[in-house]
Simulated scan of single mutants.
Amino acid sequence: MQHDSGGPADRPRKRGQGELENQVLAVLGEAPGPVTASWVQERHGGDLAYTTVMTILSRLLAKQAVSRGRDGRSYVWSAASDAAGLTARRMRRLLDTETDRASALVSFVSALSQEDEQVLRALLDASTGDPDAAAPDERER
């Protein structure tokens, strides 16, 4: 006898790595101030168990992406960074594990799209205060 349940079509879609963390950060980013895990759970849509929200918040705390304080007997949570900041932390953490940082950076930059490379160049030029880093139309004047 065969059962129709339990197959791949019956399972909910598996979330991508970091997707829940980014969603929780987005909810915290909309908060009027420090909020409880229950507040996050409700604003997320209520489809996550309270324990799941607490686990995500705890992981984000370990990554320094959120801060935690007390309001009476409850913990309250605030975003310390947005999703972009969390991605940047992940990138730095991965780079910190690399013994040949230069090769890792070369591989990363060589895999960028032309648009991403231009953004990165502009950011690096701006951070060094390079006067020749003006926009191309300004250099032509």
Rank of each mutant, 00 (worst) to 15 (best):
Q2V: 13
H3T: 11
G7C: 08
P8V: 06
P8G: 10
D10V: 12
G18Y: 02
E19A: 15
L20M: 12
L20T: 11
L20A: 10
L20S: 09
E21I: 01
N22M: 10
A26T: 10
L28R: 00
L28Q: 01
E30W: 09
P32A: 08
G33W: 12
P34T: 05
V35R: 00
V35F: 03
T36C: 08
S38R: 15
S38F: 13
W39S: 02
Q41P: 01
R43F: 07
G45C: 07
G45T: 09
L48S: 07
A49D: 13
V53R: 01
I56V: 15
L57D: 02
S58T: 15
S58A: 15
R59T: 06
L61Q: 03
A62Q: 07
K63F: 02
V66P: 00
S67W: 03
R68A: 14
D71E: 12
S74D: 07
Y75K: 06
V76H: 02
A79N: 00
A80I: 03
S81T: 15
R90Q: 11
E98I: 13
T99R: 13
D100W: 01
S103K: 15
L105W: 07
V106Y: 10
S107Y: 04
V109M: 09
E115P: 04
E117T: 09
Q118H: 06
Q118R: 10
L120A: 10
D125Q: 10
A126S: 09
T128S: 02
D132H: 13
P136C: 08
R139H: 06
E140R: 04
R141I: 11
